[in-house]
Amino acid sequence: MAIEPDQLDQSGLELAAMLKHLRRQAGLSGVRLAVRCNMSQSKISRIEGNKLRPSLVDVEQILRGVDAPPAIVAEVMAMARIAQTEWQDRKALHRKGLDKKQLELAGLETATTEFRYFLLSMTTGLLATPEYIRESIVHAPPVQQDKVVGMKLERQAVLLDRSKRFTFLLTEQAVRYPLVSPDAMAMQIDRLTSLSLQINIRIGVLPMGVKFSNIPLSTFSIYDDRLATIETDLGAVVFRNPKDVRSLIDRFTLYETHAAFGGDARELLAEWAWSFRQ
């Protein structure tokens, strides 16, 4: 089923209204439902007021608490799954400020132990040189650019935390996309080679000739097994539903089997860096 951005925006409100309607239809007060669900009454109130995003388990408990029939359970659980998905419009993110986005990412990275990144067309800021970062945000307001470059570079410190594990899968297009001058591109690729030697970082590359997918591709990131994002040129979709996150983990694992790692990856990176130096 295709999910439209407007549908994502409305889904939380619709789910909250439906759960409140079902409680009232069952003749239950918030206190009585809370007891049936082993939740606090304040949590029920926040869910019904759309002030708290309920997990799928929360929704299942509430549906059992109101004795909802199977057809209603199926309908509401479908709504809950959509509500677990968030659309982030790229233009809205720019209006909000790229610096605020960097703070959000830094907080997410602090709370994550295992990171998985599939990079389709460009290198991520965590792996980028200052020149590459600056060119990647050239369309941002000039007053933000210096600050955002500095924040992106500060975020790279997370790579030094040996308690965290990183796997980056980059297509050849992502590695070789000529965002900066040839000399700067060679240095950017050299950085990938250097980081691939770090014990808690795995960098895999997928050369052009490798057929590793029969489905449309998008850049995506996975944080542990609790949250994932898919990025497009229009914005990003954030998934919190465990089934959706698991689906992306499975896809990532499949891509890994086709990627070159270690010495094989470094040979390819050296070849591509040399092509920019010639």
Rank of each mutant, 00 (worst) to 15 (best):
S213W: 05
R162H: 05
H21M: 12
L127R: 09
A259F: 11
H94M: 15
E60Y: 14
R32M: 12
M1G: 05
Q102D: 09
Q278L: 13
L120H: 06
E231G: 01
V143E: 15
K164N: 03
A83Y: 06
A80W: 14
I44F: 00
L98M: 02
Q10N: 11
L22P: 06
D190G: 14
F118A: 13
Q10T: 10
L98A: 10
K20S: 08
A236Q: 07
P69H: 05
I189L: 08
V59K: 03
Q173R: 11
E109M: 09
L206A: 00
M151V: 00
D233I: 13
I137N: 00
F252V: 04
S221N: 11
A26Q: 09
E114T: 14
S213M: 05
E131M: 10
N38W: 02
E172N: 02
A184L: 13
L120Y: 06
L268F: 10
P130N: 00
A184Y: 10
T110V: 11
K43N: 12
P69Y: 06
I203W: 02
T232G: 11
P54C: 01
H21G: 11
M79T: 11
Q7M: 12
W87R: 09
E172F: 05
I62E: 11
M18V: 03
K43Q: 04
I62N: 09
L13S: 04
E131A: 15
A71T: 07
S275E: 14
L254C: 01
N38I: 06
E172G: 04
N241E: 14
E267F: 01
Y117W: 08
G262N: 09
E14H: 14
G125P: 07
S194A: 15
L179V: 15
H139A: 11
V237S: 04
L206G: 00
N214A: 08
Y255P: 03
D250C: 09
M39C: 06
R191Q: 04
L160P: 02
S196P: 04
N38S: 12
Q173G: 12
K147C: 12
H258W: 11
A26C: 02
M1V: 03
K147V: 10
D89S: 13
I222R: 12
S11D: 07
G107L: 05
S218C: 10
A71V: 14
T123G: 10
Q188K: 10
T232H: 14
S221R: 15
